[in-house]
Design a protein around this nucleic acid. Sequence first.
DNA 1: GATGAATGAGTATTCATTCAT
DNA 2: GATGAATGAATACTCATTCAT
Lengths: 204, 204, 204, 204
Amino acid sequence: MKKGEKRKQELLKIAYDMFLTRGYENTSVDEIIERAQIAKGTYYYHFQSKEQMLEEVIDMMIDSETEMAEQIIRMDITVPQKIVGILSSMKPAETEQPIKDTLFKPENVLMHYKVRQKLIYTLTPLLSDVIKEGVNEGLFECDNIPERVKMLLIISDATFNEGTFSEQDIFVFIDMTEKLLGAEKGTMSFIYDLIDKSDMEAVE
Amino acid sequence: MKKGEKRKQELLKIAYDMFLTRGYENTSVDEIIERAQIAKGTYYYHFQSKEQMLEEVIDMMIDSETEMAEQIIRMDITVPQKIVGILSSMKPAETEQPIKDTLFKPENVLMHYKVRQKLIYTLTPLLSDVIKEGVNEGLFECDNIPERVKMLLIISDATFNEGTFSEQDIFVFIDMTEKLLGAEKGTMSFIYDLIDKSDMEAVE
Amino acid sequence: MKKGEKRKQELLKIAYDMFLTRGYENTSVDEIIERAQIAKGTYYYHFQSKEQMLEEVIDMMIDSETEMAEQIIRMDITVPQKIVGILSSMKPAETEQPIKDTLFKPENVLMHYKVRQKLIYTLTPLLSDVIKEGVNEGLFECDNIPERVKMLLIISDATFNEGTFSEQDIFVFIDMTEKLLGAEKGTMSFIYDLIDKSDMEAVE
Amino acid sequence: MKKGEKRKQELLKIAYDMFLTRGYENTSVDEIIERAQIAKGTYYYHFQSKEQMLEEVIDMMIDSETEMAEQIIRMDITVPQKIVGILSSMKPAETEQPIKDTLFKPENVLMHYKVRQKLIYTLTPLLSDVIKEGVNEGLFECDNIPERVKMLLIISDATFNEGTFSEQDIFVFIDMTEKLLGAEKGTMSFIYDLIDKSDMEAVE
DNA sequence: GATGAATGAGTATTCATTCAT
DNA sequence: GATGAATGAATACTCATTCAT
């Protein structure tokens, strides 16, 4: 990595954090350079435009999440565990601040949308391979794997990464996953114990 | 309806159209009033702010789509047909211009997101009632109906209302729907014939 | 008073209160009519313009303060007591809310300035008569009475009605008043006991 | 002084002039930049807001007037002459245009008020030192000097810098000043000859 | 590699006032 | 006397981007 690259990486990290915390639209270039303690010119030396910077930030997020997914695949764990691991890798890596839901506040919709689009696109083949592994092991029985995987990713993201969810949501998700993949009942029920209950809505 | 209300409705329709065509962020108040041929003050007489207008536009869309769903429920058709009808009602009513994908261009993400959130919230109980009807008829067999319905709505929206889809997507969607509701295989396969193939991506 | 006049007086009172609390510039006609529960048209039926309303509000304030001064003159008290009484009448009549210093916040400067100008203009002849009375009684000895009175009013207002003042300010004020009017030392020292010490700044 | 500072000083001078001529509220940012021949952005690059610019303009005025007062103090003239000199320094430095009374038109009240407040605050200690000098010389005899000085400044400002004044006003002012400071009669009477009679109102 | 002064089109919002009913 | 819908000029401020040094 060249010398200039280092500065650029720093900038990306700062921007990533600010975009996540305050939203892309609500973060001005002025605010970024102020926090990074650099001049306007320096910013535009590294990035063609703010929008192009967003793309790079998103790529950075995707890369880190994809890498995590690839690590999971290479791990010596069961196929169902790999599935859950990859689904979990979709969760936005939490920064120092407890931001949680800021990603879903209207002002952050744009970035969230872009990340989700790209993430589903990159995770689909990875997760498909895992499913195929499961099919080969006789654990699952299904066709049209990529299409099933896409649905799995969408539902998982919508259920667990956006806002809160209930205990029933978990049960239905498990049931749906098993049926979608043609797995025997109970195959995926271990998910329940893994769920971070802190995001679960209080039972009234 | 009072005299002032009429003008307001006109404005809402114009804004609805413009927000859909060019996106909320890209539509300036100046452009709206120019097209509506009214003065700046008139706009702000009727709406507190541009954002509040967006809320009203969205409510208008939701209302029309909810109404459509309610009509479908009251129709003398089979339960599976009702389901498909309600799912279809989530599609944005096409205006005169052929806009199609503009709703999913980044600039429209905000409005799309807000509409989707509200729509799922309002359609869930309506569709749940239909599913219960199906359960009573012995057509379906499942618990946690609202949770299943929510997933159905999410998947249906993500599959058919966002971008393009393939033939396999349809098959998997049918399969998943049947399994999610505990229906016999083939119950929902009639969906395939109803799908507007013009949205289907060309087979490569 | 005619029927329409009553409504107008109500409006003036409301405006007086709002101008005092939030400042003239910061109070919009919309806010006034909203609080008064009347229509825009009604407002402009009673007042030619917002500025003309300000004049009327100020006249109202002046009138009430002038009236107070005239009552004091007719009272059966000593001349020095009358002087102090009239000087005190310059203090803005406190409304229900404890506003105090709002009159001196930048946004209220305009109204404060106008009131002060008019008040000095109307109080000068009244107070001059009292001083003449004192001269006749042999209590004071001075010429150019109106000019001295004007200075007295200015100093009194600047010292006691704007912000805070110290004990020394009181002493100097007493001293200056006596010398300005050619009174014997001690004639006005009773003022010290009358001062509302709540406005006095804490001794450090 | 840096390069950027120069442009800023230019802007301040232009604004100073415009605020004085047309009033702060009546001078729009658009008008300022048009006269300065700069872009909107340049204006906001140098000033956070119009209000903050006002503060800087005022500080500029205060500085120039304080500096004048300090020069007077160091001059080799008598104490009474110094006093008059400092009191004169409160007068707004006349710009090229003959503006005179614009400072006291309602629209200028805000700036005038702010300047007066700050000026009294900064001039009080300076003038107090001069008075102490006079006390040491045996010319004056008084205590509570800062309080007396404040009153002197207020009266002087109100009498000579706001609107017009009469011959009697001058006499009373001289008398009051002498008594306030405990000076011998006649000590300050030389003031009469120094007064710029052009501001004096015609004798009717 | 880095700086920071300059740009200018773009934006939402305010508000006193009018007038037909 | 009273209403309230309509007006439109005015205004402060934002912000991504450029470029000479």
